[in-house]
Computed example of a mutant assay.
Amino acid sequence: MLTILLFPLAFLLTLTHAYANPGACTGDCNVHDLSVLQRSSDGKYYRFSTGNRITIASAPSLTGPWTNRGAAIPSGSSIDLPGAEDLWAPSVHKVGTSYILYYSVSEFGSQTSAIGYATSTSLDAGTWTDHGRTGIASSPAKPYNAIDAALLTTSSGEQYLSFGSFWAGLYQVRMNAGATAPAGAPSYQIAYNATGSHSVEGAYMFAYGGYYYLTFSSGVCCGYDAGRPAKGEEYKIMVCRSASATGGFVDKSGKACKASGGSVLLQSHDKVYGPGGQGVFTDSSQGLVLYYHYVDTSVGYADGQKRFGWNKLSWSGGWPVV
């Protein structure tokens, strides 16, 4: 009888994924919509995030101590749109011998948006030059919202920028060699959630093991201190994959990402609530690392209390696992 009772319990446990808790963080660990990378010249870590005209923090280790170093674009953007003084969702990438920082100019809930960029040779505060528009913008006449940009460079050197939030979902466009403007071809849809408010945003792509992985955030992102959504409707990190960098993304069940597909990579668990705003980078010692912001329920639910989270990625059946 005991064996019979234990069997269904063991079976259920195999169906339940226990997420690893976030890695340690010391110092300045409050953050929202972040981008993390490690400088190859000296191994120093840099983190860029929404707020204070793109906040730069740095640390000798991924665990910290993180120190606020100031604003990347202290004078605000040269883009003449509402939101030029309150820049969002930075994404920083190395292109050639320098770095490019994409940022969003918009207001919350608005489709009047543009993606701008700045460049630096070192990542440090005081070294960034703002160049304004990339040429990717949106209005109510467009199917997408031009925010949340992130760059993918393929092994053959092609550059693709993903972007989008709600409306008709996530889009992609091929960029020129410097990744500063579209290469001329039109943008195209790579993911869409047909249900509810079409809550997909924050695309980030990376390559591994012969596939391109598309991660994105889905659900209600913010304002949890004022009122939390129905259970399971809060932010979570999703993933699809394709053998091509430019489309055909499907989830673990084979459902197309353009047809509301997406498998959960990380969701609320333990004291972690509403993880999202994610990206992936290659750490010199840990390999592929997923980073994100989240609410620590033992601390508080306000947007300003969100924390820096990170986990080393593991793999199961060709899919990333936290």
Rank of each mutant, 00 (worst) to 15 (best):
193 N>R: 13
238 M>W: 01
204 Y>L: 00
274 G>A: 15
77 S>R: 04
218 S>R: 11
250 V>A: 10
309 G>C: 10
171 Y>R: 05
11 F>H: 13
131 H>V: 01
148 D>F: 02
198 H>C: 01
298 S>N: 14
50 T>Y: 12
60 P>A: 15
322 V>I: 12
148 D>S: 05
226 A>I: 08
99 Y>G: 01
178 G>Q: 13
240 C>Q: 03
115 I>S: 03
174 R>K: 15
205 M>A: 11
209 G>A: 04
290 L>R: 04
308 F>V: 02
57 A>V: 05
53 R>F: 09
247 G>F: 11
155 S>G: 14
44 K>I: 05
83 G>Y: 09
185 A>P: 03
39 R>A: 02
283 D>N: 09
35 S>W: 07
242 S>V: 05
255 K>I: 00
308 F>K: 05
255 K>Y: 06
276 G>Y: 08
146 A>T: 02
202 G>M: 03
73 I>E: 12
228 R>C: 08
209 G>T: 03
55 T>A: 14
141 A>Y: 13
130 D>Q: 12
151 L>T: 00
119 T>A: 09
266 L>S: 10
159 Q>C: 07
172 Q>L: 03
205 M>W: 02
90 P>S: 10
220 V>R: 10
307 R>Y: 06
147 I>Y: 03
85 E>C: 08
199 S>V: 04
185 A>G: 13
94 K>M: 07
297 T>G: 09
29 C>I: 01
299 V>R: 12
318 G>L: 05
3 T>E: 14
252 K>C: 00
296 D>N: 15
222 C>P: 06
12 L>Q: 15
184 G>Q: 04
182 P>W: 10
206 F>W: 12
311 N>D: 14
249 F>S: 08
